[in-house]
């Protein structure tokens, strides 16, 4: 779905960079200028700049900006610690918290006209999901060694031929469901907003969908983080 106006693409086009006309560019430079790439960079710069502005001088008595981050990061850390244990939470907190913040901001940014959500492209979500999926197997192998295969064998030896295939299928389904869920929800939100803007933007028709969009964006970011934490915790604990 082509957006009506994407201001970063317009600026880059004025600068003389090639903007791909379809969804996927042909040359390397065109690939770098795809909207979801440029908006990913934008979200990254936004997060870094906001973090720098609010946390440049950390004080004992926190101000507004520091208070917000302390609440957010503290809440996230408690949640991780509760679900996957202190050791794993300390080791993996930077990765999962970054994913959570990035996905939340990337989802919400699509609600502003002129921006698009990088997560509305399946490339972004699959990249995030592959990182999570590979990491949870690495955690399992590091925690149990070869005994990690017990996670795939089920509770009783008799059921091994049955359970092995079921576990493998449901493990690969994690890869599919985690990426396509985020992509589908956000793309649906974006497409619906675009269509409503074109049809009846003057009568504030997209407004109720925008309210729902805020809810969907936050819930999807939360679901991604929650499932990541659950997968990591399950890979780390002993087989049932």
């Amino acid at each position: 779905m082509e957006h009506p106006i994407l201001f970063i693409s317009l600026i880059l086009e004025k600068l003389g960079l090639p903007i791909p006309h379809g969804l996927i560019g042909e040359t390397f430079l065109e690939k770098m200028c795809q909207p979801y790439m440029t908006y990913t960079w934008f979200v990254m710069i936004f997060l870094v700049v906001v973090g720098k502005l609010t946390l440049s001088n950390i004080e004992m008595i926190p101000g507004k900006g520091q208070n917000f981050w302390e609440m957010l990061i503290g809440g996230m850390y408690d949640f991780f610690e509760e679900n996957m244990g202190r050791e794993l939470a300390e080791k993996l907190f930077p990765m999962i918290a970054t994913f959570g913040l990035y996905i939340a901001v990337a989802n919400l940014i699509g609600l502003i006209p002129g921006f698009m959500s990088p997560t509305a492209s399946i490339n972004t979500t699959v990249a995030l999901t592959i990182i999570v999926w590979v990491t949870h197997h690495i955690i399992g192998i590091r925690a149990h060694g070869l005994g990690y295969i017990k996670h795939f064998l089920g509770p009783i030896p008799v059921l091994i031929p049955l359970m092995l295939f079921i576990e493998i299928i449901s493990n690969i389904a994690r890869l599919a469901s985690l990426s396509i869920r985020l992509f589908g929800n956000i793309m649906a939100k974006e497409t619906l907003l675009t269509i409503l803007f074109i049809l009846a933007g003057a009568y504030f028709a997209p407004l109720p969908i925008m309210v729902l969009g805020v809810l969907v964006s936050l819930v999807q970011a939360m679901v991604f983080v929650l499932l990541t934490v659950v997968y990591f915790g399950q890979a780390n604990e002993h087989a049932h």
Partner: peptide
Amino acid sequence: LGNYGHIGFTFVAAIFIG
């Protein structure tokens, strides 16, 4: 929604992968 909203999609994804 966070805890249980993904039930439907996980179920369908497993069936389609199989």
